[in-house]
Amino acid sequence: MENTLIDKTFRDSDGNIVIAQMPNLPLIVWVVTSLLALVFTNGQINTVLEVVANGSLFTWAWMELFQGVNYFRRTLGFVVLIALIASKVM
C-alpha cells in the first residue's frame, strides 16, 4: 500500500482510519470542569474550575499536537491550542 497524503492524514500506524477516539483523561477533565463551571458561576470555585478546564484542554491539545496518531489529529490539536491561546489573549 502506498503512503499517500490522504493515508498519512487519516490513517494510524495500523492502517485504520482515525478521526475520533475515546476521550483521554485531559479531555474528560475538561468536559467535567467546564460543565461544573456552568453550575458554579461565580466565586473562587468558578475560577479554579476555569483554570483546571483550560489547563486540561491545553494539555490535551499539546498531546494531540505532538503524539497524535495521524496528521488530522495533530492538526486538530494545533487548531485547538491556537484557539485556546487566542481566546485568552483577546
Score class of each variant (00 low, 15 high):
M1Q: 06
N3H: 08
N3T: 09
T4L: 03
T4H: 06
L5A: 09
I6Y: 13
K8G: 14
K8Y: 02
K8T: 06
T9C: 09
T9L: 12
F10K: 03
R11S: 08
R11H: 08
R11T: 08
D12I: 10
D12L: 10
S13L: 05
S13Q: 11
S13Y: 14
G15S: 02
G15F: 01
G15D: 04
G15P: 02
G15A: 04
G15Y: 00
I17A: 12
I17D: 08
V18P: 07
V18F: 13
V18A: 11
V18Q: 09
I19F: 14
I19N: 05
A20T: 10
Q21K: 11
M22Q: 02
M22I: 13
P23I: 11
N24E: 15
L25D: 03
L25T: 10
L25E: 10
P26W: 01
L27A: 14
V29I: 15
V29A: 02
W30A: 07
W30R: 00
T33F: 00
S34T: 15
S34D: 08
S34R: 09
L35H: 00
L35M: 12
L35C: 02
A37G: 07
A37D: 03
A37Q: 05
L38E: 12
L38I: 12
L38G: 12
F40T: 01
F40E: 04
T41L: 02
G43L: 03
Q44Y: 07
I45S: 03
I45V: 14
N46C: 06
N46L: 03
N46G: 02
N46Y: 10
T47D: 08
T47V: 07
A53L: 08
N54M: 06
L57R: 02
F58V: 12
T59W: 07
T59N: 06
T59V: 09
A61E: 01
A61C: 05
W62P: 05
M63G: 06
M63T: 06
E64P: 01
E64K: 13
E64L: 11
E64M: 15
L65R: 02
F66P: 00
Q67F: 14
Q67T: 13
Q67I: 05
G68C: 05
G68E: 04
G68K: 04
V69Y: 06
V69W: 07
Y71E: 06
Y71R: 14
F72E: 02
R73P: 07
R73I: 14
R73F: 04
R73Y: 03
R74T: 06
T75F: 15
T75A: 15
L76R: 09
L76V: 12
G77E: 04
G77A: 02
G77M: 03
G77K: 05
V79P: 00
V79M: 03
V80T: 10
V80A: 15
V80G: 10
L81V: 04
L81M: 13
L81C: 11
L81N: 04
L81G: 09
I82V: 15
I82Q: 01
A83W: 11
A83F: 08
S87G: 13
S87A: 14
K88D: 13
M90T: 12
